[in-house]
Amino acid sequence: MRIQILLFAQLREAVGYEQKTIEASNGETVGSVARRFFDSNLAGFLNLPVRFALNEDFVAEETLLKDGDRLAIIPPVAGG
């Protein structure tokens, strides 16, 4: 299945793009896909306390992905 990963702020700057579509296996979770992405592309940010959003709602790492999901990796926010 195909998952669209969205990146922001320091993570976007580090990889040099805002989004990327990746292949994932059926049954994979948010956490497993995110860990693989960090290991390959964002190894310098493994200690950054990120959160995840699927289709614009915060989700837990254990959430199962489905084909076509938009997975946003949310670094620490600072609005206001």
Partner: peptide, 27 residues
């Protein structure tokens, strides 16, 4: 409302300084 906006709304702030390199801010 303002406290929760600061915690849960996906907005990021990058500050540019006179005396230091710019940086992303954590709330």
């Amino acid at each position: 409302v303002i406290d929760t906006i600061k915690q849960d709304v996906p907005i990021w702030k990058k500050e540019f300084y006179s005396d230091h390199p710019e940086g992303w801010v954590s709330a």
